[in-house]
Nucleic acid binder design. Structure first.
Length: 250
DNA sequence: ATGGCCACCCGAGGTGGA
């Protein structure tokens, strides 16, 4: 099974790019973030079935699957707020697609970010045994885990996405039993986000904010991981500021 | 020149992203 995760920064601006990825890269399940649109205006990608947790203008996540979706949950239980979470079961695979809040240095949004992670952990703990189940947690976590995950750790010290509390949040997910697929493949700097400003992508001034985390039974099934940097680098059509990731399970 | 933001709201510039 080939799984794509991609922060599209507006699905309507990235419809062509997503179509190319789905069909030319032979994707089975696509986890999309920052779709920035309500469900009614989300484009169709037949024969993919798309589940959409949308909202106007901001945020929003979607899962598009070529394979039958057995179960799903759109948003956390009783959630009224921002659209950042979708869970789907496809075959034996439990796939959680998230767009974590950025948060900021002012208390309110940062607190919301921490609360979002509490809810996420609660959802996982209540439903899955990560030693036995096939669980994939992917998306834009908006956290750079370690120094190697930011292009300049001196410059990023004290900045949001790289604050100690956030980095501990990533530690906590790994302590729960998740494996960071990209990091388990290489100790080298790998970036999935490049700011549009300042020509960041040409200077390799990036951050690793997008992840594919897997439960331990999926590790021997992980066949390949691909970082599609060219999709971020090219100018026509206009790119998202994030890099798509493809992981294949066998 | 090779290059420095982009997409949303709507119909102008303000705002949020990270």
């Amino acid at each position: 099974m080939r799984v794509l995760t991609f922060n599209v920064n507006s699905i309507r601006s990235r419809q062509k790019v997503v179509e190319e990825l789905l069909f030319y890269r032979d994707i089975d399940v696509a986890c999309l973030q920052e779709i920035k649109v309500v469900e009614e205006k989300f484009p169709q990608f037949p024969p993919f079935q798309c589940l959409v947790n949308g909202q106007k203008q901001y945020n929003g996540v979607a899962v598009c699957s070529r394979l039958p979706i057995e179960k799903f949950q759109i948003g956390f239980e009783g959630e009224q707020g921002e659209s950042r979470f979708i869970y789907t079961q496809i075959g034996n695979y439990h796939i959680i697609n998230i767009y974590a809040p950025l948060g900021d240095l002012y208390q309110k949004r940062f607190k919301y970010k921490m609360e979002f992670y509490r809810q996420l952990e609660k959802f996982i703990e209540q439903r899955f045994d990560l030693r036995r189940d096939f669980v994939i947690l992917c998306g834009d976590l908006n956290i750079a885990h370690r120094e190697v995950d930011v292009w300049n750790s001196e410059e990023w010290k004290g900045k949001v996405t790289f604050l100690p509390e956030e980095r501990k949040e990533m530690d906590r997910l790994l302590e729960m039993g998740f494996i960071d697929v990209v990091r388990s493949a290489t100790p080298k700097p790998i970036f999935t986000f490049y700011d549009y400003r300042g020509g960041a992508v040409y200077k390799n001034h990036g951050l690793r904010l997008d992840y594919v985390l897997i439960s331990t039974p999926l590790l021997p099934k992980t066949h390949s991981i691909e970082l599609l940097l060219n999709v971020r680098k090219r100018r026509d059509p206009k790119p998202s500021d994030h890099v798509p990731l493809i992981v294949e399970f066998k």
